[in-house]
Amino acid sequence: MTKLTLALATGLIAAAPVFAQDSLSGPDAFADISDEAERSAAMFTEMGKVLTHPRCVNCHPVGDTPTQGDDMQAHSPPLVRGDADFGAPGMTCNTCHGPQNVALTSGQGSIPGHEPWMIAPVSMGWNGKSLNEICTQIKDPARNGDRDLEAIYEHMATDGLVGWAWDPGEGRTPAPGTQDVLGQLTRAWIDTGAVCPS
C-alpha cells in the first residue's frame, strides 16, 4: 500500500520541543578560530541555528504558502502569500493574527501574533535551502529587500517580528538563544567580512 503524505495541519498545537539546538553561542565562543574568514563563516553557521529554525523559516517560504508549528506543517487554513505577502483579499494574515499572541480559550496552545505579521517576500524564501544559499541571499540586495549589511544587522538585532521568535506563545519552541545574542553574532559576522559558510 502506498503511504500518501497529504498536507495535514498537525502543527498548530505542537507538543514538546523537538529541537536540541536550544542554545546559541555568542561571538566570544568563536574567538579561538584564528582565521578571520573561517571565524566569520563559523559565526554565520551559528546564526543559522536561528535562521533555519521553524520560528523563522515558517514565514520565509520559498513558495506561495507558509508553514506552521515546530514540525513545519502546511499552514492551516491554507493561505497564499498574495501580492503584498499578506495573504489574499478576503483572508489576509490579520484575519487571524493580531498584534500579540493570543492563548486559545479551549484546548492548548495559542495563535501567534505581532504587529506587523506577514510573510517574507519570495526573494527572501529560505525554506529548504542550505546555509550557504541563505547567506548569499541575505547579502544580495536584489534578494534582501535592498538592504546593506548594516540594515541586515538592524533587522536581526532589533526587528520586532524577528524578536517574536523568542516569545512565540504557548505551543511553539522559541528560537535558540536570544535576539541580543543573534545581534552580537550578526555584528561580529559583518565585522569579520560577512563570509558565508560553504
Binding site: L8, A9, L12, I13, P78
Partner: peptide, 28 residues
C-alpha cells in the same frame, strides 16, 4: 475519505482535538 480519522493512542486517549487535526474539506 481524504483526511479524517479518530484514533486512540497508547492508553486509550483520543489523539485528535479540533479541526487542525481532524480537517474538514475546504472550498479549494
Amino acid at each position: 475519505a481524504l483526511h479524517d480519522r479518530i484514533t486512540l493512542g497508547a492508553g486509550g486517549e483520543v489523539e485528535q482535538s479540533n479541526f487542525h487535526d481532524y480537517p474538514m474539506l475546504r472550498i479549494g
